[in-house]
Design a protein around this nucleic acid. Structure first.
Lengths: 381, 381
DNA sequence: CTGTTAGCGCCTTCAC
DNA sequence: GTGAAGGCGCTAACAG
């Protein structure tokens, strides 16, 4: 019923092996023979049996790209760029030669689903796997993922991390491209501080994620450097003192300000909206809000306006990622640009072995501060 | 080296056949035996060989979801919902039982790549394929896709269309969920007309796509019903007359107004920006702009402001899709809501055979007009 | 350059 | 309820 390679061989009057050779193109075949085989393939409308070929060759042409949230352009842009690099342009014939099948898998940010997808990809003997975005830092999951990645690597699957820092466990990977979230966040907050802001709220992403932690750390680094926040009990004395020097009325400098002015939410605008309302309640004198990402920042903007406050006159708002829509926000959003498409494309090339990995396998990708209309000096009040 | 089913069988002291049976769960096995096998699987950290099993069973657990642009939330939302429905919640063990591997493939809107992906999926003997979003209407591609889908269906792959109308060729599919783009677009333009707008610009999507055509048709239906635009040469006389009755100074009613006030661009904000600038040049008296979708509308808003015009006082702007960010635009965007998540989920269930197809296999999904702040009555001028 | 020969690892009738 | 055996369709050594 279904046409097989043997059928093609018969029609082209060659052996199955020869057909296999022209199809895979990895072996010298006489031009005339190839011609005949190709014609037979077209005549019979033959399509290679993937599973059979993967079984025999012990490799498949599947490449998985894992993302935390496919509805978020942050991931869409990276995944799209990676996929374009992996899938190749196609030859328009629809015949699909030796192309890889680049597919994206949506984990929804769930470590369980991430693990499941990894297993499924392992089962398919995937040629490569690209993990994008921040990882959950829960030790159990971290270990499980590490073990799984090691197994994948052992089985010959190329593992690439994109926008995700290599874990301390040191799992096996071809390359890890990490964004400089910490540095970007620090520069962003420094920008606000230089504008004169002192009461800065922070809407952080979900706790336990590397991206969240790094961005928050960058923010706090800047705050502390300005003597504006307290890290933990150990630093309370010193930093509180510095704080008092800088601020007034016992503020800033309160040992709990960091916590009081930080809210953890998920990466969506609704959460940003709610969290900002909450921050505004906690600290009515707040003059700036830094959001975990641009999407959250949009929600923050809505909340600020909801309270009858103007951006940036009354409250400055900043985001992170510089997604395409951020420049169209009104006012345009000050944010930190991450070269998502470039990183995704590079990850794709790394997964294909088309590019040599960075020294040590690890590369840090710079984040660029984009100052736009949503931030300005605070009104004197 | 790599552990196989036979290894598990040996360790569990049963035959390979039995192991296969407990793994697939499609056959009665004594509880104690199953227990033993499962333990052996865990002990050995066995992972099924997908290609081998697909080859033997002549089916795979791969389900492909094709999207035009993975960086566009329009597709991300649908794909994510479908994937969640297909992939199941996972059991947290990372063992991955009889789960399907739901993957999304980014065609970039290119028919060639769409065809290539379809071939790749066919090669993998995919269990199902979900095609999302509008199709290109070029006859050659239409025929090629149709033929391919028929072949897939013949091979046992369940084909589901989501947000894509069934093609006239009548290709084989389990179900087709089509958005009421035409009706939604018509109601949107009717809303503007009822507000008093007469000079309405339209930033359409890429030509040759069903979505573009349907939305544009809906818009023109409304315009013509109001006697405000001219379809083609055939209708020029009649409609132009009606137009003159309604308008003044030979406008509206010009036989080329439809073309003059319509610009085709791709679905991104930059295009929306450029197109709107162009429209503003062509028709400075324009009081409203309808965009192909929300993303394009955002660009349109930027262009309107660039010209020093206010929204909605000077120019009303409307979008389509009601993506999450649209409500946060300033002013909030009037648009047409499409139940993307619901449609995607339903498509996923259909692909899994978990839901019975609509009568005739075709269902139209309603589009709801969302009136918000970006549209208002035109200033008298 | 091309044909021949063995499997790849699993599922699936069949018997028991 | 369980085991034994054949083959799914293709690739990868080998010969020639």
């Amino acid at each position: 019923m279904t046409v097989t390679l043997a059928d093609v061989a018969a029609r082209a009057r060659v052996s199955p092996a020869t057909v296999s050779r022209v199809l895979n193109g990895n072996y010298p075949v006489a031009a005339s023979t190839r011609e005949r085989v190709l014609r037979a393939v077209d005549d019979l409308d033959y399509v290679l049996n993937g599973p059979a070929s993967s079984l025999a060759a012990a490799t498949s042409d599947l490449v998985g790209i894992l993302v935390n949230d496919i509805a978020d352009p942050f991931f869409g842009i990276m995944a799209g760029a990676a996929q374009a690099e992996i899938g190749g342009p196609g030859d328009g014939s629809g015949r699909a030669g030796g192309e890889k099948l680049a597919v994206v898998c949506n984990t929804g940010g769930s470590p369980e689903r991430e693990l499941t997808y990894l297993t499924l990809l392992q089962r398919q003997r995937a040629a490569a796997v690209v993990l994008t975005g921040g990882a959950v830092e829960d030790p159990a999951h971290r270990a499980a993922i590490s073990a799984k990645l090691t197994k994948l690597a052992d089985a010959g699957t190329r593992v690439v991390l994109c926008g995700r820092p290599p874990l301390p466990d040191g799992e096996a990977f071809v390359a890890a491209l990490a964004f400089d979230n910490r540095g970007g966040a620090r520069r962003l907050t420094e920008h606000l501080l230089s504008l004169g802001h002192r009461r800065i709220g922070y809407v952080a992403g979900p706790a336990e994620r590397t991206t969240t932690r790094h961005r928050l750390e960058g923010h706090r680094d800047a705050m502390r450097a300005a003597g504006l926040a307290v890290g933990g009990a150990a630093e309370a004395g010193r930093t509180a003192g510095a704080g008092r020097t800088a601020g007034g009325q016992g503020w800033p400098g309160d040992a709990r300000d960091e916590d009081r002015l930080t809210v953890h939410v998920s990466y969506d605008r609704r959460s940003g909206y709610a969290a900002t309302l909450e921050l505004l309640d906690r600290e009515p004198e707040m003059t700036a809000v830094v959001a975990a990402n641009d999407t959250v920042a949009l929600g923050a903007c809505a909340a600020v306006r909801e309270r009858g406050l103007r951006i940036p006159e009354d409250v400055s708002v900043a985001g992170f990622d510089d997604l395409p829509f951020s420049v169209d926000a009104v006012p345009a959003l000050t944010t930190v640009r991450l070269p998502l498409a470039e990183a995704g494309a590079r990850a794709g090339r790394l997964a294909m072995g088309k590019e040599t990995p960075p020294p040590g396998g690890i590369a840090t990708i710079a984040a660029e501060l984009m100052v736009r209309g949503s931030t300005a000096a605070p009104r004197g009040r």
